[in-house]
Computed example of a mutant assay.
Amino acid sequence: MSLTKTYRSGTYPLALILSLSLADLAHARSTHTFANLGMQSFATHCFSPFLTRQKAVDVFGVTGFAYDFYDLDPFSSAAPSPAEGRKVTVGTDRRCEISFDGTHGLQAADVAIAALKSEGLDTHADVPAHFIRTADTTLLAARRLNPRRVAVVHVGTRVGENGIETFMSVERLLPEQVEG
Results as ranks from 00 to 15, higher is better:
74 P>E: 05
49 P>A: 13
101 D>S: 12
89 T>K: 09
70 Y>R: 00
45 H>W: 12
88 V>G: 00
42 F>Y: 09
73 D>G: 02
125 A>Q: 04
139 L>Q: 11
84 E>L: 14
74 P>Y: 00
139 L>W: 08
59 V>E: 09
118 S>T: 13
38 G>E: 05
28 A>C: 10
114 A>D: 13
1 M>T: 12
4 T>H: 09
58 D>A: 11
54 Q>T: 11
78 A>F: 06
17 I>K: 05
111 V>E: 14
2 S>G: 06
179 E>W: 04
74 P>H: 09
134 T>L: 03
99 S>L: 09
15 A>I: 15
53 R>S: 09
24 D>P: 14
129 A>L: 07
53 R>V: 13
30 S>G: 08
40 Q>S: 11
140 L>G: 03
85 G>T: 07
99 S>T: 06
105 G>L: 01
56 A>F: 01
161 E>K: 08
143 R>I: 09
62 V>L: 06
110 D>T: 10
103 T>I: 06
103 T>W: 07
122 D>V: 14
70 Y>I: 01
123 T>A: 14
147 P>L: 04
145 L>V: 07
77 S>G: 08
41 S>Q: 12
170 V>Y: 02
68 D>L: 03
147 P>C: 12
97 E>W: 00
100 F>E: 07
154 H>V: 05
9 S>H: 10
97 E>A: 02
137 T>N: 10
141 A>W: 12
74 P>D: 05
35 A>P: 02
81 S>T: 02
13 P>V: 05
35 A>L: 10
65 F>C: 05
47 F>D: 01
99 S>E: 09
95 R>T: 05
6 T>F: 12
79 A>R: 10
157 T>F: 04
10 G>N: 08
12 Y>H: 11
108 A>M: 10
25 L>T: 14
26 A>W: 14
133 R>T: 15
141 A>M: 08
11 T>Y: 04
12 Y>N: 06
140 L>D: 01
51 L>T: 03
164 I>M: 10
24 D>W: 15
